[in-house]
Amino acid sequence: MLIKCIKAENMKLKHSCIWIACVAVPVIPAIMGTFNYLNNLGMLTEGWYSLWTQHTLFYSWLFYSPLIALYCSWLWRLEHLNHNWNVLMTAPVPVRDVFLGKLAVIFRVTLATQLWVGVLYFLCGKFCSLPGMMPGNTILWLLRGTLAAAGIGTLQLFLSMMIRSFAVPIGIALAGSILGFLFVSQGWELFWPYSLMMAGMNSNRSDDVLGGDILPFLISLTVFFVLFTAAAVLCLKKKDVRA
């Protein structure tokens, strides 16, 4: 059933504007981060790692969560319009699979976004004449950032499901990201879903913020994932729809 739900959700994505967001938004930090890097070569002396901070600092801190929120809002908007809630809830599939199907699609789009960020980082590195390949660490950090999307994606999918407005969950994501910086500055990044991206992508320093120990990060992700999925499925089961 879950596979069928994922296929159905994938069909909804065809020819959608979501791909414009996925491609266009990462281009902005790539271009501007690269020129900022080239303008400050005197201070930014760590090559690929310095370029990494310029590309991902603002992206992971402020704009990654609203971008995921945008994907989630778009996916639920289809159900909020034209009485589609009635169709969705009468479909012969468990509500758990409906939610997880949407989550799988969000994860797929986020993975595509992160891959695009990686490609842009590599191309910009070559444009800046940086030697060799991009460091292996940065690939790991990209992967960790993608995993962090599982926590945020679940929360945002839950919010977009509950809030019928398209825009409000995106505003919440931005507010959450800004609060996330306060959590990171206190060293509490694993206790706030919106700061997991910054920790995962290691965007503000060249040495690993998680100290190479990924287990607490994964535990935190799992807790948020289970918590928000359970809340969403419970709401879908117990709450009457407003079609």
Partner: peptide
């Protein structure tokens, strides 16, 4: 999605 995308992209551009 378009106005919100412009809002997010605008924030990015403005900050940079």
């Amino acid at each position: 999605i378009i106005p919100l995308l412009v809002g997010i992209a605008g924030g990015f551009l403005g900050l940079f």
